[in-house]
Design a protein around this nucleic acid. Sequence first.
DNA 1: CTGAAAGCGCTTACAG
DNA 2: CTGAAAGCGCTTACAG
Lengths: 339, 339
Amino acid sequence: MESKKDLRTITRKDIAIEAGVTETIVSYVINGNRYVKEEKRRKVEEAIARLNYRPNSMARALKGKKSNHILFIADDIKGEYFGKLISEIDGLAYKEDYFITLCADHQDEDFVNRIYSKFFDGIVIGSASFPLHNIQRLIDAGIPIVLLEIRDYSSIHGVYGLINTGLYEGSRRVVRTLYERGRRKLLFLDRVSTSGNWSSMDDWRLKGFTDQCNVYRLEPVVVSGCRTEDELSAKVIDLLASGYVPDGIFGRNDPIALVGMQACQKMGFNVPDDISVIGFDNTRLCRFSSPTLSSVEIEQSEIARWVMDMMMSLIDNRSSFEKRLEVYLDTKLVMRESV
Amino acid sequence: MESKKDLRTITRKDIAIEAGVTETIVSYVINGNRYVKEEKRRKVEEAIARLNYRPNSMARALKGKKSNHILFIADDIKGEYFGKLISEIDGLAYKEDYFITLCADHQDEDFVNRIYSKFFDGIVIGSASFPLHNIQRLIDAGIPIVLLEIRDYSSIHGVYGLINTGLYEGSRRVVRTLYERGRRKLLFLDRVSTSGNWSSMDDWRLKGFTDQCNVYRLEPVVVSGCRTEDELSAKVIDLLASGYVPDGIFGRNDPIALVGMQACQKMGFNVPDDISVIGFDNTRLCRFSSPTLSSVEIEQSEIARWVMDMMMSLIDNRSSFEKRLEVYLDTKLVMRESV
DNA sequence: CTGAAAGCGCTTACAG
DNA sequence: CTGAAAGCGCTTACAG
């Protein structure tokens, strides 16, 4: 229990003294990049264990080593979707000795500058609203970047990781499914946002929906631009009252879909008899609503695995890659009572 | 656009050259801790703006300055509750130029060692399962710590921040409310956990529930030890089938409460006529279930505000405090159809 | 008012 | 096989 003294102050020198060797030796033992006589190595390892020593990661990073920190930029930390994903990534990162720093997608220009402080070995961007030119800037600066393809990133060039989470195909499948059930008047409910951050056509969900509707020559309606769920609900009710009654609703995420569903129910329509409803993300909400909600499920743990996989590759061998790394993942449509 | 070159390589020296002054001057301008002649100061500031310079935070931290990183340890990153909280904290932290690193509560002893690497200016512990002796170790090591009082921390001594989130009082109020509605046979549903991480009596929700039941001389039942929601559901159904029918159910969190509610409904009981159900956290689930779920709401943004408040105080003036900082927050019982 | 210099805790090229 | 020394990008006590 002599480790009772401030552990933060134990340094290379302490270990060197404790083990009776040079600091150099300690370094090489820790980094394992030079042969060290067996006995010395043992002494050093014992000293490290005895003093509970951990190298100061800031100092290591200063010397060009990794900081072992990865930044994850999200635009909706609150959502259950990101919670799960972060949780999975955290688990994998921990095994690789990495920490995940989480950050909302702040819109001011200074944000990118702050990221440059050499603190992060890599950055995962899981935000639909992070400006493209800033992403390009980070990539050009040589920082390992992994993008979750929430929107169209085809204009980004250079070496980076791209994870296509299947949003586009998943959204098309929703339309196909509704169509096969005889649904022809489809309604898309966009997310609500107090900061005016609504979907445009480079959003994969909206694009997938629209494209597949076009294939069937349907004329879908899109409700967007709402700031709150209450506003969205009111808009849907207005729509129904005005005589436009969809027979299929696709919500950009589960809560949105449920807001739509409840609005329909309030207006006296039956789900699914009159109107089918499908959500996105397959959160726990789906199990507890009535009727239970069908929803598109994204493979969280697959995504997490690929995020760390690509990130590690990029951090370790970025220069050896000539173009971006890509992976295409699948989604699954989980059917419940609402269709 | 000369900033097109790798921004990460711009350093004090570059600024000094660009501005035609010494590195020392640059440093003092940046830190604002020495008078610098107006003209030089201006030149330095211009150079910084022109080159888009950001001090290397690792180097600063090495010299004893802050790292501007705070670690948040949570035991349930997935939950909507933490998502909201983290999101609020992130917003406040960003304004103070801080990053929040998020980490699950890993149980191995090495975890604490990793935290020691001098990387974090402070640590927020929002986990019910982080070992007490490790918390004490971190506090003794002089690291600013803020605890979210999810369980009893009265044995922890030294200087730290303690945020009582009102779980205990909130849980008692649930019991009072149920009692006032004539409910006498109360059932507490504990969280599910695959890692055997169930509540004991130092968990404030369970303790609040139990204590208040004792006040009324009720004999409550507690269902705990389930690994999955399905297992919990089965257990409740067994209980009902065996003849024990509660008239009030308190779920440790909303999904748990809903699992209980659905089990009751499946067995033919009416909520709220036969059985009242109350959850905890007031997540979105409450609005979408039927009947809608009453739930205890914790003041997320108040907590976030206090977390950052205390953390900043501790980081800046830890030594000036003689004992722990404390704050008691209130909860609110949001009544809906389920009671 | 200001600069040269030491040093934070590391890593590793260089010279034995 | 191993050590002394330079240097990563900073900060600030010290000496003008």
